[in-house]
Nucleic acid binder design. Sequence first.
DNA 1: AACTTATATAAGCATGCGATTATTGTCAAG
DNA 2: CTTGACAATAATCGCATGCTTATATAAGTT
Lengths: 112, 112
Amino acid sequence: MPNLNASFAALADPTRRAILARLALGEATVMELAKPFEMTQPAISQHLKVLEEAGLIVQRVDGTKRPRRLAKAGIDAMDQWLAMLRKALEKNYERLDAVLAAMEPNTKGKKR
Amino acid sequence: MPNLNASFAALADPTRRAILARLALGEATVMELAKPFEMTQPAISQHLKVLEEAGLIVQRVDGTKRPRRLAKAGIDAMDQWLAMLRKALEKNYERLDAVLAAMEPNTKGKKR
DNA sequence: AACTTATATAAGCATGCGATTATTGTCAAG
DNA sequence: CTTGACAATAATCGCATGCTTATATAAGTT
């Protein structure tokens, strides 16, 4: 049961996104994942814990190694949630634009 | 130029996801957005600021009202990033399963 | 002008997060 | 059985986040 809070929070960190991008190429151990970063191994382990609790990766045991790989469930959950928004955008596309275009042009204030 | 850090962080909060879900139905003012929540108006305004800075919503001026609606750019950015992961999962599907199945079956340790 | 509605901003506070160092556990190899 | 590689955990610290209350701004109403 993937948790959207944890999943999206996990993706909010660039290190964790990079880790996922690396895992998109295939399994990798903690040391392999840590190598590209100017960061200690414990830091990476903690990021991996976050990703696992978010349901985005799973681990396997191989001697003293703990290779990680992507987990479909968590990724799918976020994907579906976003699909909802995307669908709404597509559906409202013509309608919203029409409404906004029909508005008095002096109500064209933008930004703050 | 949407910022993935800010965008994903924004979605990590259930209140903000609910706000986006509401906006998926169409434009809404701050008061309309605040109504369903047991939270003060300033709190909602702050959430809206987070969503706007994340590029997920835009505002319009209508008298003293500031109706918000979804912003395509930010949502698309996240969508594309996730698509990358999803694609990797699909691509690695057979390959990974094959590799794992071919592994010595005594290396079947799961979880911690 | 005074009042109300709609919203934003500021200050304060509790909690959570990302990193570090230090330490510990486990397996593999000699 | 000792040593070294791989990895997890704990304690700590600074900074960010999410709320609150209080106040401000600005347009609409009477």
